[in-house]
Structures are given as structure tokens and as C-alpha cells.
Design a protein around this nucleic acid. Structure first.
Length: 1069
RNA sequence: GGGCGAUUGGCUCAGUGGUAGAGCACUCCGUUCACAUCGGAGGGGUCACUGGUUCGAAUCCAGUAUCGCCCA
């Protein structure tokens, strides 16, 4: 059956993939023939994800490594899976419910909503798996894992065999909690007011937007004044003014309400006289203006703005640090929706407490400060952007805005009396009064300037730094081993620059916020109970029993509603029950004997306890008393669970065979951007939990960009869909392009031109095999031999065997050091440049000639060579190679399990190599001369030789048919001297000529020769210069000097021949 | 502002001390015998700049310029 002219990827790819899967070709350990294992964990894509070019690139590299190891007989596992992507999935499902007109998340309630999520996961969660298959990824899909596997409600669709990840996550949390690595605390976190949850830095996009910088006066307390001086570089006073205020610049006026201080740099002489004094926040009811201290801190930049910075510890990350250093109270201003707080005591009351703090009359604990609502009554309940407009308006109306001339360039464009506040959902037009626009009139100084603003990458709303109670991993406690593992070289990061980044980040690590206020995720395994160990509670009778009066007091006054809760961490309620009961053992009976029950939340707990006590009051039956506890409603950050990916997917905490065989795993291939978010955390967690590194090598790559180096984005419209590429060019072309781009640390620019080129490469390979097939190379009669059994006579066959051995070594070396581009480019150059361009061409006279022995050995050799091409290319282009493998004779195994060659450079035959190098030089030089002399391409011409050394003569004799065919020569004659009008052709050790006096152009020939001479002259100059330098001969390595000498000799011979040829031309001219 | 990196032919990029390569594009020639998704032959770079180290620098060092990424 004749082969098609091209490979039909669209038809073959699904068929081949199915065949691999049916044969179980990708199962862990398939084709294993040795003890060593090789394991790659897929960086789990989001379960909501769809394949993009980044996935395609990343997974191509993994597949190359995996297929390469599998073919070499390693016990190989490529572990696939997806992560549950808390926010993204929850959002997706909410959207779906809305689109279907179904009840929303809150209406459904947690349990019902989670059922919907599981349904959604079952239906759509496998999308990316199917897409990875189209790329040819050889994952062990039977083991497909999911970071929520085993969680309550899991119907096990799409991850049927996944280890119970939920157990692993909960176990790790409990374990790390008990080791003291996890704590609960109030810290500043990125808060998404839309989803009402903390989010990670990774989920925050900092975008430059047009913003404003307002300048306001904070009056000094009690009308105090000071001399404000500005000096130039030489210390001369250039500005002097008596001021009763300090000037502050801010991009977020609404946060002024929560200011705890004004800070200036300790070296700033301008403000030295007033450091330590109090100043007034110029907003809020006049009679309750809050006073805050002027402090020093290194954070303010004296050259930026006025040099003074307001400190709002609860709403700004920099201010938070200053506040912590300076013991400045942090006042939270907003609720979870980014709306100005409307809870707690009236403003007057709160402000007086804050004033007492500012005056040093009292201090506040973190929780107490947080409970204080310092939003003036009339601003309560406003959106943060509405509040901003109000604050600006009020300060300006009171005359406390810094004023400037209307033509001040800082105002940007036309001066606006009171610019609109930041763009926000509720940004309204300005209500500022019209003012005269003359340059002389004064307007508030509101600079128009670009500011970096954080947005939630899913919600697209402005992220609010928010002081909230969250769970944290005390990263400082677990960072040590993770740093040491890389420093010691136990774990290697490629490229090396990644190691620097890794150190820099880990050495400055911050606590890691792991709680999220979502429903979809691993619920935190912590239960809370009411704190009954009331210190000031008095058991009147001292009899250890509560009477009704005492119970009443406990409920109403005992602080049960106001005191903190107690909590315990454990894998299940059963695990924490005893701990709660132990806590309660000391409190008066009958409460000490209460039975523990679980309720929904704290409100329910209080209600339930009260109810229980009321019953007790009536029936005095202590057996009905209950102690209600409730579980933390928050879930864990998705990164916390995917941090356990290496051990979790292998079945930890069970002591599984997979864990023993494949852990620690080998290589992690992932994007540079998640070095911190994932790689570092996996290192920390695996080391903290099982005291082993998760992998020995981390291969980091860049973002895949478009052909111009731009990030792909929907807005720019430059997104390349990898599946469209697969449809158009085939998966192999995309894969080969990915590999050839993958220089270590390289920028990745994907262009269709390049993909087309590698699709063409596939066609080239296809047709080379097709040629072989047409020449009966794959007939059953042709033996399938090992390299060592071939022993061909013809130099061309011996030569190509050596070339193949060499490229195999190059490919192995390149892959071993993750130089995918070198491996791919080496194979491209070999298959196209050596096999197709030369070996196939040179073989034609032998295959089609009448020397049966030569024909037979050439067939056998070509069969071997073609097989080697398919084997070596298989990890890069699995589909086309597998198809060719199946079309070329009976095979014991599919190529996916083909045996990767181990033949060495002992197959290189230096004599054959030298001979073929000479033959190729003769052919190329002849073709070049013919082409430049415009000898018709098809015309067979005679060749003369005047001088040829023994090696040359032997090479000619043995390869005459090849040379004649490829150089189009019809005869070779020995002559004493070349006749006039001969085109000169040289080869090492020989001088040839083509006597074409009647058709050549003397001038053109002279031009050709002189050009060659010119080039040679440059080279000769360099070579002679070097060898003429005694220092070079003395200090350069022997072999370099030798090489240079040999090179010079060869060039001199060439120069001599060209000069002779020019002399001959001169005779006829 | 801090950190990391880049600058090589028209384009995209390799190249860790021995005098510069690839692919694409371009020019010319060629469709009878694997392939026009092809073959043959060519042109094209003072390796960003300035100094230094070295017998020798695209490569190592210092500085300058421009650009990019990350963090603030």
C-alpha cells in the first residue's frame, strides 16, 4: 500500500491517542525495564481552566521528559490532576446559576450550593484533561487527582481513583497547627469587597490608573504654630512661613478617618519642631475632631510631596508596618463589602476613646481598636468612593485644602476646582461650586497623577487592604529547610537566576494567609466554643455548683457574649471533643458535665446554651445540658492544598507503594510567576510535613507571548488558541515549536511562521520515510538489525551510522540538562540537514544501482537510520512518529514504548567521516561553481583532475557514482594541466576543473575567484597574525595552536589553487 | 526607588574565552524519478556603547545608554 504524500494529523491524532490509552501505554511503570523511577507532577491546572498556550508549552516540556524516560525504561509516572480553584469555581457556578435563573448562592445555602459545585465539576471539570490529550500528553489519566477529592459531598466524577486529598489537607493543617506553624490572628490582608474574602497577592493585579493626590492641612492642636523653613542644597533658606498646620498628601482621603498618626522622616528638619505634638484630622464633626500624634519613622520620603505621611494602619500596607513599629492604633473603617462601617457605638463615643488613646491616657488592644468605629455618623453606610467625595468636599469647604494657582501644572490639564473622586462603581459628578478660572484665583491642590491601584483579578473591583481575623502559616518557622535545600544544591532551580529570586523572597517572607471566606474549599478543621472559664465569675456558695442566680449572671453579665472564644484543632469533631471537655472540667458543675454538640455558628451556640440552661433551671436534670461548639466557616487557600500536591497525589498520609516508589519526585516544570506562590510553598510544606524535598529540580520558564513579545490578552486580541493551532498544523508542529523555543530562561514568542516551519519539518520526515518505503527499505526481507550488527561496507552507510550515534548523544545531553531547544534543533539539523539532504540523496545510486550487496546493506542501514529518527523524535513529535512506525513493517511494540538507543560514539568511523566530508565538499564546490557560472542545472559535464592525493583518489573511486549523480558529472579524466577556460574547483588534496570554455564567462569566473581570494585573505591574516604572536604560541593550549596551524595550511593550499586558476584565466584574457 | 535580566544579520533567536550560527524572510536558478509544506546556489552582522582583564573577548569585569520583568 502506497503511503500518502503527507501526514493527516486531524485523522491520525485521535486514533493514535486512543490506541495508546487502550494499550495502557501511559500507566505508571509502563515499559519499565530498570529500577530507577522518574516522576513528574503536573502543575495542576484550575478545574475551571481551558488550555492556553502557556499550558501547551509547559506540558509539552513535561511530556518530552516523560516520554524520553519511559522509552529509556525508567519506572515512569506523570501524575495529572486539577486544583479546585476556590474563587474561580465559585464564581463560575454562581454565574451558571444566574444564567439559568436558579436561586443564587446565598439563597441555596452552603450545603446545597456545594452540591451544585460538585455537579458543575462533574460536568465541566474534565475540559482541560481532554485538551491535554489533544496535545499528546502521556499522563497516567487513571490516576487523575483533584485537590478536593474526598471532601464531603464528593461524588467522584472525573477523579475516580484520586487519593483522598481532603484527608491529606486536613491532616497537614492539624499537624502544622500542633507544631505551632499555624496561628490565627488579625493582620492586614488583601480583601476583595466583591467576593468578601481575603485573596492572595497572586490574585491581585496592580494596574496604573489616572488618580489624584489631594493635599490637606492637619491643624496643630491648640492652635500651636512653628516656623516652616525650606532650604536649598547649600542650606540657604528659600522659603519661610509661620504655620499652624502640617501638610499631608493622600490618594485616598476617605481613609483619613482611620488615621492613627502623622509620620515624618527623622532627618526632616522642616518638621523637627513639631515632632511629638498632636495635630487634628480635619474631617468629622468639629466638636469631636480627633487628635493624632506627629511621629518619626524611616518610611516617609522627605522629597516626596510634603514629606509628611498620614498613617492609616488598617487600610494601607506601608502604614501597617509603620503603625506596628510605632504602636499606633489601627482603626478599621469599612465592612466586608467596602462600605463605611455602620456598627458599634456612635461616633462621639468612639472618638472620645480614640482621643484618650492619642493623649496617652489609655491603650487599646488590637481587638479593641478594631471594635471602634471612627466613621462619623453621617458617613456611615456610604460606599468607600462616596465617602471619599464627601470627605474631600467637607475639608475643602472648611478651607483646609492646600490651595494653589489655577495654572499650577501639577493640576494636570485644565484646573478643576474639585475633581471627581477615583473611578468607582458609585463615582458621582462633583458638587463643587463654580469658580473663576483665572490664573490668579486659588484652587485646591489636587494633583492629577497616575497611581497604581490593586484590582481583584476575578472581581475587577478595587482591593481593600483590610484588617481581619485570618489563619496564617508562620512562614518564618518553616522557611529554613526550604532555603537550605536550595543552598545546599539538594534542589536545583533552572535557570540559576531563579535561585536568587527564591532566596530573596524566602529571606523576607511574610506570614502566609491561608484562610478564605468562601464555601468551595477545604473547611478549616477548627471548632470554637464559648469561653466559660470566666475569671471574675463567683460561685457564691463555693460549692462548685451553679444555682439559678449564678446561671443568670453567667449568661447576662458573665461576659459570655463578649469574651473571646476558645478553639481546638483536630481532624474531626471527635478529635476535639475531649479537649473541649477538658477545658470545661474546671468550671462549676453542672456545666462541667455538659454534653458537646455541634451547631452552625456562635449565635446558634449562645442560643442553644441559653436554652439548655433554661431547661436545666426547670428540670434540674444535668444530663440534658449541652456545650455547643461550631466549626470555623472559612476554607483554606487553594494554594495550601496544592502545596501538598506531591505527597497528596501519591496517597499520603497512607503509606502507599506509589509514595515509596515515586517520592521525592524528580522535576517540576512550571512558570516563573508561581515560584513564590507554589514552588516555595511546596518546598516549605513537604519539608515541614514529611521532612523531604518534593523534587530535586525545578525548571522555570517564562510566560508565552505573541510573536512581538506582547502578553496575550483578550483585550489586545492577540490570543493564540493552542487547539486552533493543533487543528491547523497538528499537535506535533506546536510541540516541536515549543521545544525549539525552550532555551533556558528564554523569552517565549510564539509565531505562526515558526509553527508552519516545523509542520513542514514533519512533512519532510514523512517523505523521507516514504522514499525509503518506496525503495523497499521496510520490506520484510530487509533485516532489522542493531547498530552493531549492520557493519556496512559503503562509507556513506558507515558515515550516517556515526552521525546518528552523535546526534543521539547530543539529544541525551541536551535533555539531561533541560536544553530542550538544543535537543530539538539538533534533531532538526540531523534529520533534515544530514539524513534528508545527504544520506537519502547519496543512497539513491546505491539503492537504485545494480550492486546487490550495496543495495542490501544500504536498505538495512536506511531502515535502521529511519527507525532511529522516529525513536529520537518521538518525545517531541509523538503522533507522526508513531504513525510512521506503524506504517513501516511489523513492530513488536508501539513506538511509545520503543527502546531508546544507548549506542555510543564508538559507532563513529573517523575514516568514513573524513571520506564523506571530502565527497560532500567536492559536490558542494562543484555545485557552487556551476551555479555561479550559470551552467544549466541538468547538464552533465566532464570533470578534469590535475592533482589528487591518494586519499582523495580512493574516496573518488569508492563514491564515484554518488559524486557523479549529485554534482552532475559525466566523466573524470586525469590531465597534466587544465586547459584555458576551465572552471576551477578545489577540494582538500585535489584540484579539479570543468572545461567549459565555450559556455563560461571569463569575467564572471575571475570575479568568483577574486571574491573567494578576498575572503581567504581575511582569514589568512587572522591566522598568520595569531601564529606570528609568540605569546599565543606559548600560552594557548597545544590543541588550539595545532588546530590553527592546520587551518592555516589548508587555507594556504586553497589560496595557491585559486591563484593558479586566476593565472590561467589571465592567459586567455 | 530596590532587585533580576536583556541588547548578536531584515525578523525571531541560539551561542560560558579560540575570531559568529540557525530558522524565517530576501535574491537567482530549478518542477521526470521521496517531498514545491520542495531542491540547488547566494547576499547579508565592526555581536548596543566606552573602558579594563587576557596571547586572544559576542563570551569575563566596570561603567554608560536603551528596553523588559518582578517588588515597592
Amino acid at each position: 500500500m502506497a503511503m500518502d504524500k503527507t501526514f493527516n494529523a486531524a485523522e491520525a491524532e485521535p486514533r493514535l491517542y486512543q490506541a495508546w490509552e487502550e494499550a495502557g501505554a501511559f500507566r505508571a511503570g509502563a515499559n519499565a525495564s530498570r529500577d530507577e523511577s522518574f516522576c513528574v507532577m503536573i502543575p495542576p491546572p484550575n478545574v475551571t481552566g481551558a488550555l492556553h498556550v502557556g499550558h501547551a508549552f509547559n506540558n509539552t516540556l513535561q511530556d518530552i521528559l516523560v516520554r524520553w524516560h519511559r522509552m529509556r525504561g525508567f519506572d515512569t509516572l506523570w501524575q495529572p490532576g486539577q486544583d479546585h480553584a476556590g474563587i474561580a469555581t465559585q464564581l463560575q457556578v454562581e454565574k451558571m446559576l444566574a444564567a439559568q435563573g436558579d436561586p443564587g448562592r446565598r439563597e441555596l445555602g452552603r450545603e446545597k450550593f456545594l452540591e451544585k459545585v460538585w455537579e458543575w465539576k462533574g460536568q465541566y471539570g474534565g475540559t482541560i484533561v481532554e485538551q491535554l490529550k489533544r496535545l499528546g500528553c502521556s499522563c497516567d489519566w487513571d490516576r487523575n487527582a483533584f485537590t478536593m477529592a474526598g471532601a464531603p459531598g464528593d461524588p467522584r466524577t472525573g477523579h475516580e481513583q484520586s487519593p483522598n486529598f481532603h484527608d491529606a489537607v486536613i491532616r497537614v493543617f492539624v499537624d502544622m497547627y500542633r507544631k505551632g506553624y499555624i496561628y490565627r490572628g488579625k493582620r492586614l490582608v488583601n480583601w476583595d469587597p466583591h467576593f468578601e474574602t481575603a485573596i492572595s497577592d497572586l490574585e491581585v493585579e496592580n494596574v496604573e490608573v489616572a488618580g489624584h493626590m489631594w493635599h490637606f492641612k492637619y491643624p496643630l492642636a491648640g492652635g500651636a504654630t512653628y516656623e516652616y523653613l525650606e532650604k536649598d542644597e547649600d542650606g540657604n533658606v528659600v522659603f519661610r512661613e509661620t504655620r499652624d498646620y502640617i501638610s499631608i498628601a493622600t490618594t485616598r482621603p476617605e481613609t483619613m478617618l482611620g488615621d492613627g498618626a502623622v509620620a515624618v522622616h527623622p532627618s526632616d528638619e522642616r518638621y523637627a519642631p513639631i515632632v511629638g505634638q498632636l495635630c487634628e484630622i480635619p474631617v468629622g464633626p468639629k466638636e469631636h475632631r480627633r487628635l493624632i500624634p506627629i511621629i518619626t519613622d524611616d518610611y516617609p520620603d522627605p522629597d516626596f510631596g510634603s514629606g509628611a505621611v498620614k498613617i492609616t494602619g488598617a487600610h494601607d500596607f506601608n502604614d501597617y508596618q509603620v503603625a506596628r513599629r510605632g504602636g499606633i492604633p489601627m482603626y478599621r473603617l469599612m465592612d466586608t463589602r467596602g462600605v463605611m462601617r455602620d456598627d458599634g457605638a456612635p461616633y462621639a463615643e468612639a472618638a472620645s476613646v480614640a482621643l484618650a488613646v492619642a493623649n496617652g491616657e489609655r491603650t487599646l488592644g488590637v481587638a479593641e481598636a478594631d471594635a471602634l468605629n471612627l466613621v462619623p455618623d453621617h458617613l456611615r453606610g456610604l460606599d468607600r468612593f462616596e465617602a471619599r467625595a464627601k470627605v474631600v468636599e467637607e475639608i475643602t469647604a472648611e478651607g483646609l485644602a492646600v490651595m494653589t494657582r489655577a495654572d499650577d501644572p501639577r493640576l494636570g490639564g485644565g484646573a478643576k476646582p474639585a475633581p471627581a473622586p477615583e473611578p468607582g462603581p458609585h463615582a458621582e459628578g462633583t458638587e463643587a461650586p463654580d469658580q473663576v478660572r483665572g490664573a490668579e484665583s486659588l484652587v485646591p491642590l489636587v494633583e492629577a497623577k497616575p497611581i497604581m491601584q490593586p484590582f481583584g483579578d476575578r472581581s475587577k473591583v478595587v482591593i481593600e487592604p483590610m484588617l481581619t481575623d485570618q489563619w496564617f502559616v508562620d512562614a518564618e518557622k518553616v522557611v529554613g529547610p526550604a532555603l537550605e535545600a536550595v543552598r545546599s544544591g539538594e534542589v536545583k532551580i533552572i535557570p540559576e537566576s531563579g535561585e536568587k529570586t527564591y532566596y530573596h523572597w524566602l529571606e523576607n517572607i511574610e506570614p502566609w494567609c491561608i484562610s478564605r471566606q468562601l464555601w468551595w474549599g477545604h473547611q478549616i478543621p477548627v471548632w470554637y466554643g464559648l469561653d466559660l472559664s470566666v475569671e471574675d465569675f463567683k460561685d457564691d456558695e463555693g460549692d462548685g455548683n451553679l444555682d439559678l442566680v449564678e446561671l443568670g449572671r453567667l449568661l447576662n453579665e458573665g461576659g459570655m457574649l463578649h469574651r473571646g472564644d476558645v478553639h481546638h484543632c483536630g481532624a474531626s469533631l471527635e478529635e476535639v471533643t475531649d479537649r473541649f471537655l477538658d477545658d470545661n472540667a474546671d468550671i462549676p458543675s453542672p456545666l462541667s458535665h455538659a454534653t458537646l454538640v455541634e451547631v452552625a455558628d456562635k449565635h446558634a451556640a449562645i442560643h442553644r446554651l441559653a436554652e439548655s440552661l433554661a431547661h436545666y433551671a426547670v428540670d434540674q436534670d444535668p444530663t440534658h445540658l449541652v456545650y455547643p461548639v461550631w466549626r470555623d466557616p472559612d476554607v483554606l487557600d487553594t494554594w495550601f492544598s496544592s502545596g501538598l500536591w506531591p505527597i497528596g497525589t501519591l496517597g499520603w498520609p497512607e503509606d502507599t507503594e506509589e509514595l515509596r516508589r515515586y517520592f521525592p519526585t524528580d522535576v517540576l516544570v512550571t512558570g516563573f510567576d508561581i515560584l513564590f506562590f507554589w514552588v516555595a510553598r511546596m518546598m516549605m510544606m513537604q519539608l515541614a510535613v514529611v521532612d523531604q524535598v518534593p523534587f530535586h529540580t525545578v525548571y522555570l520558564h517564562q510566560l508565552v507571548r505573541d510573536e512581538k513579545g506582547k502578553k496575550m490578552s483578550k483585550t489586545t486580541g492577540n490570543v493564540i488558541d493552542p487547539l486552533e493551532i493543533v487543528d491547523e498544523f497538528g499537535a506535533d508542529a506546536l510541540r516541536f515549536t515549543n521545544a525549539s523555543m525552550a532555551a533556558i530562561g528564554g523569552v517565549l514568542k510564539l509565531s505562526k511562521e515558526r509553527i508552519t516551519g516545523y509542520r513542514n519539518f514533519g512533512t519532510k520526515l514523512w517523505n523521507a520515510v516514504r522514499f525509503a518505503e518506496m525503495n523497499e527499505v521496510f520490506n520484510d526481507a530487509v533485516p532489522q538489525l542493531a547498530a552493531s550488527e549492520l557493519n556496512p561496507q559503503a562509507a556513506v552507510n558507515r558515515w550516517i551510522i556515526g552521525e546518528t550515534a552523535q546526534v543521539r548523544e547530543e539529544v541525551d545531553a541536551a535533555l539531561a540538562s533541560y536544553r530542550f531547544n538544543d535537543a530539538a534543533n539538533g534533531l532538526y539539523a540531523f534529520v533534515w540537514g544530514k539524513v534528508c539532504d545527504w544520506y537519502v540523496e547519496l543512497s539513491k545510486p546505491l539503492l537504485q544501482g545494480d550492486d546487490a550487496a550495496a543495495q542490501a546493506e544500504t536498505r538495512a542501514t536506511m531502515r535502521w537510520v529511519m527507525d532511529q529518527c522516529l525513536i529520537l523524535l518521538h518525545p517531541f513529535m509523538p503522533f507522526i512518529t508513531e504513525e510512521l512506525w506503524s506504517q513501516t513493517g511489523n513492530r513488536a511494540k508501539m513506538l511509545v514504548h520503543g527502546d531508546w538507543p544507548a549506542h555510543g560514539t564508538d559507532l563513529i568511523d573517523p575514516e568514513a567521516e573524513a571520506e564523506m566530508t571530502w565527497v560532500i565538499a567536492v559536490i558542494e564546490n562543484t555545485r557552487s561553481a556551476r551555479s555561479q557560472m550559470r551552467v544549466p542545472a541538468g547538464l552533465y559535464v566532464p570533470m578534469l583532475v590535475t592533482q589528487i592525493d591518494a586519499a582523495g583518489q580512493a574516496a573518488w573511486d569508492r563514491n564515484e557514482a554518488l559524486i557523479r549523480r549529485l554534482a552532475r558529472i559525466d566523466s573524470l579524466s586525469r590531465v597534466e594541466a587544465l586547459p584555458k577556460g576551465t572552471i576551477s574547483i578545489s577540494a582538500p588534496g585535489a584540484s579539479f576543473g570543468m572545461p567549459l570554455a565555450d559556455i563560461i564567462d571569463i569575467g564572471a569566473e575571475r570575479e568568483r575567484l577574486e571574491k573567494s581570494l578576498g575572503k581567504l585573505g581575511k582569514e589568512l591574516g587572522g591566522l598568520r597574525g595569531r601564529l606570528g604572536n609568540p605569546k599565543f604560541v606559548d600560552s594557548a593550549p597545544e590543541e588550539v595552536v595545532e588546530e590553527t596551524r592546520a587551518n592555516l595550511a589548508a587555507r594556504e593550499e586553497e589560496e595557491r589553487k585559486i591563484k593558479e586558476a586566476l593565472a590561467r584565466l589571465a592567459e586567455i584574457a
